[in-house]
Design a protein around this nucleic acid. Structure first.
Lengths: 164, 164
DNA sequence: ACCTGAACACCGTTCAAGT
DNA sequence: ACCTGAACACCGTTCAAGT
């Protein structure tokens, strides 16, 4: 395992245990038993670390979506459950531009593939479905729905428009 | 105009002209001709300023949505066009938990009202529509769609599922 | 090849003190 | 009532130097 991958492992741990503000160069270094400046021998800058987290999130999410049962409902469940299991990682992965030049080719399309398949190949439908799922997840993660809202029912209602 | 409102005016200007990272206590103070510590006499902390921006965004967006022609398509256009006209403000307003205790009561429901009306009072449908619009806007603002994607067509396709 | 200490240019925030 | 300077505890990052 490369030193860069070790740094990313630590970053994931800090992100999930202490939240995004705790992901500092000094904290990552401290967990590895070195000093912050040493990180720059293995990583270009902090943004490079965040791009690495984004890539990992996309890869893991792609695997999770690909493993879902056929059908729009199961895919939607998979999308939501992955996001709820990794809320901080989901935010890091989606609330910033895709670092296309820093992420291995094919990762983006692999994550999109199950959605495109569920849309029967219609790219506009696929984007609409993705936006719908993302919007629901993003608003839930930001606590924007009223406390006590029945979000299962909201998801069901949301999908009715798109079920054939 | 209260000193707090002056600070919020400056914050909006900095946000739109220089981006979110430039919204620092020192920069706001400098634009007002004072020092950063002085801001704390008029504002509790930086989060209070962000909550103020969130409130302003919701109020302005509510007015804009309420002025839309009847019908789902016009409402969706209004949502998207407000967000694209104030992209930074949209992000500040939506990418953080609603500061319910810091925002005047009624602001949240006023912003939601046009969407609930378009949903014929169905709260689940209203949330689904909101999430769909938010997801499309959020992904567009984060540059997540492929360059050159025909997003007008995506919006049209997205809404077909919900038009009666 | 990998790590360090010292340093630079920043942050948000507190507080005693000035007018 | 409003503003200030000095200070504190942080940031990301660079760089010469050490092993």
């Amino acid at each position: 395992m490369s030193r860069r991958d070790e740094i990313l492992d630590v970053a994931v741990a800090v992100l999930e245990e202490q939240g995004p503000d705790a992901v500092t160069m000094r904290e990552l270094a401290a967990r590895m038993g070195i000093r912050a400046p040493s990180l720059y021998k293995h990583v270009r800058d902090k943004d490079d670390i965040l791009a690495g987290l984004q890539e990992r999130a996309l890869i893991d999410m792609a695997r999770h979506l690909a493993a879902a049962e056929p059908g729009l409902g199961a895919l939607a469940d998979a999308y939501r459950s992955w996001a709820m299991a990794h809320p901080r990682l989901y935010e890091v992965a989606t609330r910033r531009p895709l670092a296309r030049e820093r992420i291995a080719p094919g990762v983006e399309s692999a994550a999109a593939a199950p959605i495109v398949a569920a849309a029967g190949g219609d790219e506009h439908l696929a984007r609409a479905l993705w936006a719908l799922a993302h919007g629901l997840v993003d608003l839930e993660l930001s606590n924007r729905f009223p406390p006590g809202a029945d979000l299962d029912a909201t998801w069901r209602k949301a999908l009715t428009g798109f079920e054939k």
